[in-house]
């Protein structure tokens, strides 16, 4: 597979390490009432779509950016690649 890195252009997927669902960015608040339940869901519950899937890839043999790659699991077509840091900020993650 080829992943179009937002900064570095097309790169072979062999340069990357796969982590999984991009929802891992949405780490729950440890002080919330239901923190234990929220962490359980965060860690153990995943959608397994046949189709578009947003997922985290790490450019280990590259610039060490974490990327959010949107990939169709049925065709491997990649429709968007974003820097995970930008995605995280857009989802309200900060300090």
């Amino acid at each position: 597979m080829i992943i179009h890195h937002p900064l570095l252009g097309p790169r072979d997927a062999q340069e990357f390490v796969y982590l999984g669902d991009a929802s891992l960015i949405d780490r729950p608040d440890w002080q919330a009432e239901d923190a234990a339940g929220a962490f359980h869901d965060y860690l153990y519950l995943r959608d397994n779509p046949a189709g578009l899937h947003r997922e985290l890839w790490f450019h280990e043999q590259g610039d060490r950016s974490w990327l959010v790659v949107t990939r169709d699991t049925t065709t491997h077509e990649i429709t968007s690649v974003e820097l995970a840091r930008d995605v995280a900020r857009a989802r309200g993650r900060s300090r």
């Binding site: 570095l8 062999q14 280990e60 043999q61 590259g62």
Partner: peptide, 10 residues
């Protein structure tokens, strides 16, 4: 300049 792996060596 690019980072790459040459014969599996980064």
């Amino acid at each position: 300049v690019t980072r790459t792996a040459l014969h599996h060596i980064g």
